[in-house]
Nucleic acid binder design. Structure first.
Length: 966
RNA sequence: GGGCGAUUAGCUCAGUGGAAGAGCGCUUCCUUCACACGGAAGAGGUCGCAGGUUCAAUCCCUGCAUCGCCUACCA
């Protein structure tokens, strides 16, 4: 005898079944599987991360697909892993170090990296454990990490090949610099945020001074408007619009730049918006992207006045040097005020770039960085989507994708941190550059802390500590090559220094054999390695020790499941790299899901404190209910506003399923004798019906899943299990199960078990744990439900569905009367049903008679008369359904007038509907233009109403007569 | 500034060119031998506003409003 507790407790079984699956290797692809391979690579979560709602939705969707395809017989590989999250991870470990009074420079590069690996070993698998809690059926034996050996090889190979083809290059230009993380970041990693700042109006004196030139002109100076007064120190021009009459005559004139005394020129550039500010724009090519462009057009010089830490440097002048950029702003405003050069200031809302990681305001800095030349790669990536080699779902994302790809800029891939793939490039200070300058003269070092040069024999040395400088000079001062490298926080190799890019590490310059080579200290953007994920994880590049079977079998992968927030960061870049290095798309379809927001529609964030923790949800409701909720919310093209009530609702659904199972297994013995395998002509109507509804549901669910319509799939299953299987079929079985013959019982019990098993299988991709638990308990299988066959292609029986519809009509008709007239449920009543019509193949009267005991039980009637010539008993309540009239004698049961009231209410509804239809049917245009079947349908509807109305009217009259005679 | 999306029952959301659906909540009744994490019966919406196309519009088009998001060189 199967024993099940009265309620389902997820916490008791989830870990058990997960361990069972993993132990038996069920997550690994079955290479013998008959259907084609199906591969998903997980969007690698950040190693420092912990599970949030976004992961939960993302992983749930992937798991549903993986389990579904696996049960359908495909060779399924869902490949998991994490990425090394360069900046984030380095930050985490640096924070840890600082608590110990240490720093990365004190440790040195190698020791620091070792320390991060140690951290990773300890904490890096947290997110993996959390994915397992969710039930993710990833093949953990293939788990990868973007910094592991194989993936690092892939990164190196890709970099070298791109270098050889000239697709990666170094250039000196403005980049987005985070003064706190101390690294360059790409355009995408900058978050723009509206901030209320100030617009300062500053007078720039003309030199020599001029008389007023236009009305309103101020003659002696030109006023510029700026939000960043501190950058005045780096101004190299003032620009006006060439069409601007106010300033036309000033073009070419000189200005004495305040606070510096430098002379700069007024130039004309159409970039300038005459309507904004004063129409005069100060140009700081070294600290503003627009200004950089203007500078290039006009060949202006660039003066950097801010350093890598966000402080003013020596070029800012003695008065300001060493100040934080904001402190400097304040001071400069004061100074200008004192000089009478501040004309005014006003509040100003503008958007400012911030570091995505630490939210510090970005400082545009002029530096040499590595870039990927993106144009040709992007063009191919656009074609792949245009030609539908890759399908984005929902399709609307394609527009976004194209728009971004069309305006794509070269990708800055170097990062000034230590944790990551170090760029495989060396510089030789002892070789000469193209213009015959010693490279050592072109390489600048900035030290972490001042270094005191050792005493040089005969020289002074050892006196003044230095903060860095030109390589050659540092050497001359007596600091050794190794010391220079060890102490360098930043190494700036001039653009003209030739990079030596190698597949394998080198220790000497291949040209001059010098052993003083300097490796490029930068590492690559984490996304550079993520871009290779779909093939690097499968074993690319192949070599002797790695035959890359997986790559052959599973590339291109099938579906990528991801959020739109990393469409550009990651998806677009994978497409480019896949096409470039594999010659084929990395995946066929990209399912782009929504963001999970809170109830109010706000993005969840720590600072808002509106985070819902998936692990808390799992604890409270179980992983199954939580997953089902996410799937039910995953409608396409809309964000998810997460609501805990829904989780609770689906938790109840599980309980419903659990208890239906308890009902069924009470009769295990009968089932064991002859299990059912499917439809059979000898079955009775309710069985034919539920099997047909099951077939319908199976079809719907498969269809919805193949279109990524997860919410529709969950709804179909929910509707079927609760409202068809439990509400109707199980109720139908009760009279027979309790009172039928053993043969009747056996058939029904077999059917119950059959439908239960199919339901569990249907549900398994969504609710892996409870389905496994029940399946094992009930069906006593040694394997796993996840390895069983997914229901597919069952036959419907429309005729049975129609017939059952009449039975259900009869029951609801009687129940409505009972309910609305408040007839006590304890009271057994009598009903008469006049059924004289044949609809389709169904003689309604016969159908009802054949199912009489169920109808009686479900309506608590002690007697039901069914026939063609049933006569209405005086004082009956009536319900008119298609093909039948139901009468319930209520005389003596209750007040006649409340029944009259009920019928009048129904009449009002009918009248309203009829007048609407009537208008339509009298409209010649409708009759002329609408398709025939629609007109026909509307006519039928109208006739039905006429019929119903007549009957109800008659009944009202009769009741009224009784009322009077009482 | 440009683009995209949203606006449907009290709440969270589906949906369709032919008189609107679900879950939760609400009302009434019911502790009937799977389940009160339950059952039965109900109430509740001029589908953001204004025009247009159509025999017919919640759905298609235009404009407006509100709210999101993405993107951008208003300093």
């Amino acid at each position: 005898m199967i024993e099940l507790k009265k309620t389902y407790s997820p916490e008791e079984i989830e870990d058990k079944w997960y361990a069972f699956w993993e132990k038996n290797g069920y997550f690994m692809p079955d290479m013998e599987a008959a259907e084609p391979p199906f591969c998903i690579v997980i969007p690698p979560p950040n190693v420092t991360g912990s599970l949030h709602m976004g992961h939960a939705l993302n992983v749930t969707i992937q798991d549903i697909l993986a389990r579904w395809k696996r049960m359908l017989g495909h060779k399924v590989l869902w490949l998991p892993g994490t990425d090394h999250a360069g900046i984030a991870t380095q930050n985490v470990v640096e924070r840890e170090l600082s608590k110990e009074g240490l720093s990365r420079q004190k440790l040195g590069r190698d020791a620091f990296i070792e320390r991060i690996w140690k951290w990773k070993a300890e904490y890096g698998s947290r997110i993996i454990h959390q994915l397992k809690k969710l039930g993710a059926s990833c093949d953990w034996s293939r788990e990868r990490f973007t910094l592991d050996e194989g993936l690092s090889k892939a990164v190196r190979e890709v970099f070298v090949r791109l270098f050889e083809e000239g697709l990666v290059y170094r250039d000196n230009r403005l980049i987005n610099w985070c003064p706190r993380c101390h690294t360059a970041i790409s355009d995408l990693e900058v978050e723009h945020e509206e901030i209320e700042g100030k617009l300062y109006f500053i007078k720039y004196p003309l030199t020599p001074p001029l008389a007023p030139l236009a009305k309103g002109g101020k003659g002696g100076y030109i006023t510029v408007a700026t939000t960043r007064p501190e950058t005045i120190l780096g101004d190299t021009a003032v620009a006006v619009n060439p069409e601007d009459d106010r300033y036309k005559n000033l073009i070419g004139k000189n200005i004495e730049l305040p606070l510096t005394g430098r002379k700069i020129q007024i130039i004309a550039d159409s970039l300038v918006d005459t309507a904004f500010g004063t129409g005069a724009l100060k140009i700081t090519p070294a600290h503003d992207f627009n200004d950089e462009a203007v500078g290039k057009r006009h060949k202006l010089s660039s003066i950097s006045v801010i350093d890598e830490d966000g402080f003013m440097n020596e070029r800012a002048g003695r008065r300001y040097s060493g100040l934080d950029r904001y402190a400097c702003r304040k001071k400069i405003v004061e100074d200008l005020k004192e000089l009478g050069l501040l004309e005014g200031e006003k509040r100003h809302l503008h958007s400012i770039g911030h570091c995505y990681r630490c939210k510090t305001a970005i400082e545009p800095l002029l530096t040499v960085q590595w870039y990927v030349k993106i144009e040709s790669l992007a063009a191919d990536a656009v074609s792949a989507v245009e030609e539908k080699k890759i399908k984005l779902v929902p399709e609307q994302w394609e527009n976004n994708y194209f728009a971004w790809m069309r305006e794509i800029k070269d990708w800055c891939i170097s990062r000034q941190i230590w944790w990551g793939h170090q760029i495989p490039v060396w510089y030789c200070p002892d070789c000469f550059s193209e213009n015959r300058v010693l490279n050592g003269e072109l390489i600048e070092h900035i030290f972490f802390e001042p270094v005191t040069p050792p005493l040089i024999k005969g020289g002074k040395g050892g006196v003044n500590a230095i903060t860095g400088g030109i390589y050659s000079e540092l050497r001359k001062s007596g600091i050794s090559h190794d010391e220079i490298i060890k102490n360098s926080k930043i190494i700036k190799a001039h653009k003209s220094v030739k990079p030596i890019c190698e597949r394998y590490d080198i220790t000497a310059c291949p040209e001059c054999m010098s052993r003083n080579i300097i490796r490029d200290p930068d590492v690559l953007d984490t996304w550079f390695s993520s871009a290779l994920w779909p093939f690097s994880t499968l074993g690319w590049p192949a070599n002797a020790s790695n035959n890359s079977e997986d790559l052959k079998t599973f590339y291109p992968t099938n579906t990528l499941v991801t959020g739109f927030d990393i469409l550009f960061f990651w998806v677009a870049r994978m497409i480019m790299m896949g096409l470039k290095f594999m010659g084929d798309v990395p995946f066929r379809e990209v399912y782009i899901h929504a963001l999970v927001r809170d109830l109010k529609g706000q993005k969840m964030s720590k600072s808002k404190g509106n985070i819902i923790d998936p692990l808390v949800m799992i604890d409270k409701y179980g992983a199954d209910a939580f997953r089902f909720t996410l799937a039910a919310f995953a409608a396409q093209g809309r964000d998810v506003r997460f609501s805990e009530d829904r989780v609770e609702g689906y938790r109840h659904f599980i309980n419903k399923l659990w208890n239906a199972t308890r009902y069924i297994v009470n009769n295990e013995e009968a089932w064991l004798q002859k299990p059912m395998h499917g439809r059979d002509a000898s079955l009775k109507l309710p069985e034919q019906w539920i099997l047909s509804r099951l077939a319908f549901t199976v079809d719907e669910v498969n269809k919805h899943l193949s279109h990524y319509r997860f919410n529709d799939a969950t709804n179909s299953i929910y509707q079927f299990i609760w409202h068809e299987f439990c509400d109707w079929y199980i109720e139908f079985t009760k009279p027979i199960l309790y009172k039928g013959s053993s043969e009747e019982r056996a058939t029904i019990i077999n059917c119950l078990f059959f439908v239960l098993e199919k339901s569990l299988q249907l549900l398994h991709p969504f609710m892996p744990y409870v389905t496994e638990d029940i399946w094992h308990n009930v069906f006593k299988q040694s394997k796993s439900i996840m390895m069983s066959k997914y229901p597919d292609a069952m036959e419907r029986d429309i005729d049975a569905e129609e017939k059952m519809g009449h039975v259900i009509d009869a029951i609801t008709g009687i129940r409505s009367i009972r309910g609305e007239l408040n007839i006590s449920p304890a009271l057994e009543i009598r009903a008469d049903i006049k059924a004289d019509i044949k609809i389709g193949s169904a003689d309604i009267g016969n159908v009802l008679k054949e199912n009489l005991s169920a109808i009686m039980k479900l309506t608590r009637c002690r007697e039901i008369k069914i026939g063609k010539d049933i006569r209405r008993v005086k004082g009956s309540a009536v319900s008119v359904k298609e093909g039948m009239e139901i009468y319930i004698p209520i005389e003596g049961l209750l007040d006649i007038s409340s029944e009259v009231l009920r019928l009048k209410k129904e009449m009002a509804k009918i009248n309203e509907a009829m007048s609407f239809l009537n208008k339509k049917l009298l409209n010649e245009d409708f009759l002329k233009n609408a398709p025939n079947d629609i007109v026909q349908k509307e006519r039928e509807k109208f006739n039905d109403f006429v019929n119903k109305k007549e009957k109800i009217e008659e009944n009202i009259d009769l009741l009224k007569q009784i009322g009077k005679s009482q």
